[in-house]
Amino acid sequence: MSADAARAASPFPSAPENAAHAVRTPALRLLEAMLFAAGEPLDEATLASRLPEGADLRALLAELSADYAPRGVNLVRVAGKWMLRTAPDLGFLLARDKPEPRRLSRAALETLAIIAYHQPTTRAEIEEIRGVSTSKGTLDVLLESGWVRMRGRRRSPGRPVTYGTTELFLVHFGLDAIGDLPGLEELRGTGLIDARVSAGLTVPLPNDDTTLKDDEDPLEPEFNLSFAPEPETDEDTEE
């Protein structure tokens, strides 16, 4: 077979035909390499500091994002940072190659949702919203997952610990900011909240600002990230 015939039979474009798609400026290539090699999302300040002087980071990100949009890997913004992530429509095909994640119990999911929407919140406040006692193990699981953190202590009797979500929570759920959590109408649309629920029901606007509130004190330096002694229960119990 001649060289011309072989090129014609090949399913891949020839080098000259594909050259336009392969052209990338040095700055764009460097940006792509940084995002590919990073083990975690990168903020724009970090990206800009490593690009050639005068590079337009926003324009480069927009170009790279558009370039990756139809591919198996997408450039996405999560937690205010940038990362390369498997295209959503292909995730289920790769799930079998990943370690089976630990499934959260219903109690843990409810607790996580309350913390996300009501942060900063205490264990007692979580129990008041749920209407059931929350076991120490439930909060331990969320802390170990890295999705929840201890923020500080409430200025109230007993000085209970306050909880909030983390950047890892945003990354895991693909959120750019905590405000991207669904609102009441979106929750009703997905069926997570019954449409017949009282019209007086409201969903708070979530806020994960790391600054302590006026009624919070910082955690003690020697605080060992464990809970104070509390009655142990295997599961959440009805009050």
Rank of each mutant, 00 (worst) to 15 (best):
M1A: 13
D4G: 00
A5Q: 06
A6N: 08
A8K: 01
S10H: 07
P16C: 05
A19H: 07
A19M: 03
A20K: 05
H21K: 03
R24Y: 08
L31H: 04
F36W: 10
E40L: 05
E44C: 08
E44S: 13
A48W: 00
L51M: 06
A55E: 12
R58L: 08
L64D: 08
A66S: 15
P70V: 05
V76E: 15
V78L: 11
A79D: 15
G80Y: 06
M83D: 09
M83R: 07
R85D: 15
L90P: 13
G91C: 12
F92A: 15
L94F: 12
D97P: 01
P101L: 04
R106W: 11
A107D: 14
A108I: 00
A108P: 10
L109A: 14
E110V: 11
E110S: 14
T111M: 06
I115P: 08
I115K: 00
A116W: 00
A116T: 05
Q119R: 00
I126G: 05
E127C: 05
E128A: 14
S133H: 12
T138E: 14
L139P: 07
L142M: 03
S145L: 07
V148I: 08
G152S: 09
R153A: 07
R154Y: 10
R154Q: 12
S156T: 14
P157S: 13
G158D: 11
G158Y: 10
V161G: 02
T166S: 10
F169N: 13
F169Q: 09
V171M: 09
F173P: 13
D176W: 04
A177T: 13
I178H: 05
G179E: 12
D180T: 03
P182V: 00
E186D: 15
S198F: 02
A199L: 02
G200E: 13
T202I: 11
V203A: 12
N207G: 09
D215P: 00
E216N: 04
E216Q: 02
D217W: 07
F223V: 10
F227I: 01
A228R: 01
P229K: 00
P231W: 01
E232Y: 14
D234N: 07
E235S: 07
E235W: 04
T237K: 02
